[in-house]
């Protein structure tokens, strides 16, 4: 047990701050500030992954955190929490975590905040009114992450997570997510673009939560409770289960094809599908479409 309510941990070159979940938020803020002050600029330039545990944070709380990080030259990179957080909608997360936040000046920051609030309101209504809908598709108002329009053509950033997500734990990230570990039943991973799971996917994965229909979900062992891509949602497809028996499961990929989510062997032995994860860039989008059949 450590007596500090905030633990600093290096994670793949980023800095993970784990907030003690018993401590009141105001005290955490004070503590963080004191700790950063005494660190004498040591953490300057680092990207921060914030682990908030099961606590509920308001948008104002997140703003306060972001302000402190900005003051010490650090950037807010990702948020890792647990449980359905009713107070923060993924939309506001995406806005807060969007890559442009770090280098923005004070002025534009206030714009962002008001924008975040706008998006927050929007999530309660229909966010994607025009998206096409497959037969099995259902609208996904809850986990939809709205990302800045400008981001669509920027190369998506990738968050690497080395841990197993347990029931109730959620990772939200606006770019791609690579997770080395399992996603257990009841856990959820939400990415703006692609998701790669080097392990078993037994919980829920939402790729392309910003509405990206080209997003895919890769897993070594695909046995999810639900898959969501863009505004499509599906349960585990049938053929998948035969492969999922025991430890002989083969890697599979889920993507949208003809308006529904399909899952197939990965890599396919047909003409190889380019790994969108690596190739996504401004011009690759169109060429990305798998051209089988």
């Amino acid at each position: 047990m450590s007596d500090s309510p905030i633990q600093f941990k290096g994670v793949n070159g980023d800095l993970m701050l784990s907030l003690d979940w018993g401590e009141p938020f105001e005290q955490l803020i004070d503590h963080l500030e004191a700790q950063l002050k005494s660190s004498d600029g040591f953490f300057r330039g680092s990207k921060v992954i914030l682990e908030i545990g099961p606590r509920l944070l308001t948008l104002a709380d997140l703003d306060a955190l972001r302000d402190i990080l900005a003051r010490f030259g650090m950037t807010f990179h990702a948020l890792c929490g647990m449980g359905p957080d009713e107070k923060i909608k993924p939309a506001s997360l995406a806005t807060l975590l969007a890559p442009r936040i770090p280098d923005s000046s004070r002025d534009s920051e206030s714009d962002q905040i008001s924008h975040a609030e706008k998006v927050l309101d929007a999530t309660t209504a229909e966010v994607f009114p025009t998206a096409s809908r497959g037969r099995a598709g259902a609208r996904l108002p809850r986990t939809s992450v709205k990302i800045q329009p400008g981001d669509a053509h920027a190369p998506a950033k990738t968050l690497l997570v080395k841990r197993t997500l347990r029931s109730g734990q959620v990772i939200n990230y606006a770019g791609n997510i690579i997770l080395i570990g399992d996603i257990n039943p009841g856990a959820e991973v939400v990415a703006g673009h692609d998701i790669l799971i080097w392990g078993s996917l037994r919980g829920t994965a939402s790729a392309g939560a910003a509405g990206d229909p080209l997003a895919s979900i890769f897993a070594l062992h695909m046995a999810p409770s639900q898959l969501r891509i863009g505004d499509h949602i599906t349960r585990s497809p049938r053929e998948n289960l035969l492969a999922a028996e025991g430890h002989d499961a083969l890697p599979e990929v889920a993507k949208i094809e003809n308006g529904t989510i399909v899952v197939e062997a990965w890599p396919t032995n047909k003409k190889s599908i380019p790994l969108k994860m690596n190739l996504r860039s401004s011009s690759a989008e169109a060429a990305d479409k798998p051209s089988r059949e």
Partner: peptide
């Protein structure tokens, strides 16, 4: 899994 996904899955995939 078969019980949940196999029996009456109306999903086209």
């Amino acid at each position: 899994k078969h019980f949940f996904f196999g029996a009456n899955d109306t999903h086209p995939a």
